[in-house]
Design a protein around this nucleic acid. Sequence first.
DNA 1: TTTAATCCTTATCTTTTGTTAACGTTTTCA
DNA 2: TGAAAACGTTAACAAAAGATAAGGATTAAA
Lengths: 201, 201
Amino acid sequence: MDKQFKINAFRTGLAKFVTFEESEWEILTQYLSFSTLKKKEHFVVEGKVCDYIAFIIQGAVRHYHVKDGQEITGYFCFENELVSAYKSFVKRVPSTNFIQALEETQLVLIAYADLQKMLNHPLLALKMERFGRLVAEYYICCFEDRLNAFVTQSPEERYTVLEKTAKDIFQRVPQHYIANFLGITPVSLSRIRKRTLILKD
Amino acid sequence: MDKQFKINAFRTGLAKFVTFEESEWEILTQYLSFSTLKKKEHFVVEGKVCDYIAFIIQGAVRHYHVKDGQEITGYFCFENELVSAYKSFVKRVPSTNFIQALEETQLVLIAYADLQKMLNHPLLALKMERFGRLVAEYYICCFEDRLNAFVTQSPEERYTVLEKTAKDIFQRVPQHYIANFLGITPVSLSRIRKRTLILKD
DNA sequence: TTTAATCCTTATCTTTTGTTAACGTTTTCA
DNA sequence: TGAAAACGTTAACAAAAGATAAGGATTAAA
């Protein structure tokens, strides 16, 4: 997987937010860097300011907290998605969680400092501000849905919805991570699965 | 409370995102409108596209869903905050929830169509894109915290945190709304309060 | 001011979840 | 390849939450 392939995939992935002119793209690509995470390698660690936002070319990561010595997985990201510890990245404060590769993961990176340069670059500023706005709006919509699920649905309902809308996640992510993601314990998810399986007959 | 007072309060409230030059402000203020919601009046109703984003000069609102004929309150907004059904507003899709005034509420409004005009206005575009980005980033951070609370904390812990960080909300909002906000039933919140009260001795 | 509606608490009972531990299977890696 | 770690299920018990209903207090409205 060569660099040009990654750059092209990145450009395609950004198309749902903004499309860059050739001249703009030439500037932007100068600020990109690349990284490969091995399985279990960390992209973000607790206590450190997150300095990058990344686009996932290939692979998957999980966000997790450590509470009472236990890991609690709060979110997943897969290929063609952006990933960062947003609050840490945006506000320049230490991250409260880890982000770790679930598989070998290919990333295109934009450093915070470089993003600021682009936001101040006369030929790029407007497009980059729009890009940032649209990305943030996109995640607001995702988070709004996820928050609504916690407020209005039971764990079992959240599981059922996930099983319908993103079945493939169960083939790709250990079930006890998914349990945390749904706001419950692995044991409880196992019971819910048994319950709902019987109902399917 | 006259219009000029509201405009000034609005400007002050936006200062944490961007500060507008006089020339910019003159243009922007031409796109503002104003509204007063009586208690229980709706700012957004389910099924309709939300056409406004609003700044709360005075008052309070709640977001709620209707599920099985029951209202479930998911979020509150108070003075000096922005309020909208973001997903509906941004994506131009029907809102899945209601937003209703908890008290008489004074709003400064920006219509979606006018916001687009400003985003395309040569003298305003850059500043407005930035404004939009920073607002969206701000809410991402809020939502991230709230999501983490649902994943990593028990209902009792969420209550305890709220009681420590926003005690005043209990003086202002009916407790059964707060219960929903915490992801539990009013009966359960009442029990948690009793439990934690005893522990305080 | 009287009536109705809203709200919080409490009690009872049911259901669900959390906790801990055991077991067998699969995966990892030394 | 062989030992260790990771994973999912199940069981048993405790703790918490949901559902329903009743009672009393406060608030709103006719």
